[in-house]
Design a protein around this nucleic acid. Structure first.
Lengths: 251, 251
DNA sequence: GGGACCACTTGACCCGGATCAAAACGCCGG
DNA sequence: CCGGCGTTTTGATCCGGGTCAAGTGGTCCC
């Protein structure tokens, strides 16, 4: 149970093997939105000139670090990335996990420096978009501008959700459902999730202790909501899970 | 102790009495950033054509409601606004408090509907910017686009801070310092703060119980950090307060 | 002046989740 | 096959902050 069962073999079959063939990964944040309401060929071509594919980054390595000058945003092309902030006490706070097609680095704009580290959870390749160039492009192509606005707006809403005061059960249920949805968007199973990150990272992201995550997962399993096998989670009752998370996800 | 002592008599003396004289309120999110790196007269003029001043909204009334179609963003011109979300259980979650010059509504972009209510805490006047018009303007004037990007980016970072797992003391200290800074930016005292919102709103915003806010304020006072008189808070030891909040505010 | 109402404070108690400690389960290299 | 190490689980205990309840004070209106 490894090669064929692995639901996380990025990129997915429907992705192009290489970005040089005049189209973006089907799941790319840019690619998708640019095509909404009519395929904007010109926008895609121009974006295509702009994007640079980076060399693979291996698990534990950083795409950018806290404090570095903000120069570009990145779309995850393959693999999974986490972003985190380390506070003065040395406590780590995980800000998010990013799947292929999702964008990281936008939060660096305000201070002109990245406010967090971006770390690969496995072998990761990225698409780099120089932000100065991208914003010039955005002034010429309203579709790009709108896409950027919407992506940032989405981040604001998401961050607010994480900030709410929810119970451990609500948080974990919402976390699983959110991942499920994002996997499904990318053509993977919505019920069979491979969590690439250690429990400690999940706990930290949800502002819980690792022990609590472990216990809640166990209880979810005992209640028949999910089946847990190491980092493989199978959702067995989507409805009840959604009911648990309804307050967090509501929208 | 009311009229002369009131530190919140918006708009401040340096603001224009009326927006029709070719410049923005000195504290406006747009006005300020447009002038950074050279006064962009054209941008200001064009923005000026776009903005509409709304009739005063009284305490408790709404500028916009959850679910309404997103059509515009608003800059607070006078008074104080809170934004909140009501979840399915009917629990209120306060997302932010907004002072003159600050912008509300940007988070409605993503879903094309406002994801929260905006409620006046006292008598409020707003400047309304039609978003479709604003984004067209942004494609022609890079300064405007950059301003919008930065403002949204700032919201993301702020939201992430609120989401961290901090103690009640850290949260409250950070809250007071944040307000202090924003008041100071607007020409008011950095040490003498008038909290316009009830304790319950502060508590809700910080994800604490009202009783906890009350107790922590009392303890801060006993420790000589602040002096509390009803909704008037005087910071008496900025340094120690900053030390308490260092992990939250760090950046 | 008195009563109703609201915002706030204070005290007593309780609970969810953190912390501490230790065992179980991989996984890898030798 | 064994030993070492990191991850995860499980149990026992503790504590910050929530909850409940009562009391205080201010304001408005009759």
């Amino acid at each position: 149970m490894s090669a064929p069962g692995n639901i996380l073999r990025w990129p997915s079959p429907q992705d192009p093997g290489d970005g040089d063939d005049q189209r973006f990964c089907s799941t790319c944040a840019f690619g998708r939105v640019c095509m909404v309401g009519g395929y904007d060929k010109r926008a895609l071509e121009e974006l295509h000139c702009l994007v640079e594919h980076t060399a693979p980054i291996h698990a534990g390595e950083e795409a950018f670090r806290y404090g570095e000058p903000f120069a570009a945003i990145y779309a995850v092309r393959a693999g999974m990335v986490k972003t985190r902030r380390i506070d003065e006490q040395g406590r780590e706070q995980i800000l998010g996990f990013f799947l292929p097609g999702e964008l990281i680095g936008l939060n660096g704009l305000y201070t002109a420096r990245y406010p967090c580290d971006a770390i690969a959870l496995d072998t990761v390749t990225l698409c780099r978009f120089s932000f100065p160039q991208l914003s010039v492009l955005a002034t010429r192509l309203p579709g790009i501008q709108e896409t950027l606005f919407k992506l940032m707006s989405k981040d604001i809403v998401n961050a607010a959700l994480l900030g709410g005061d929810y119970s451990a059960d609500e948080r974990l249920a919402a976390f699983l459902l959110n991942l499920s949805e994002r996997f499904a968007d990318r053509g993977y199973s919505a019920t069979r999730l491979h969590l690439m990150m250690p429990r400690a990272d999940i706990a930290n992201y949800l502002r819980l202790a690792p022990e609590t995550v472990s216990r809640v997962l166990r209880r979810f399993q005992d209640d028949g909501l999910i089946a847990v096998d190491k980092r493989e989670v199978t959702i067995t009752s989507m409805d009840r899970l959604k009911h648990l998370a309804r307050c967090v996800l509501q929208q």
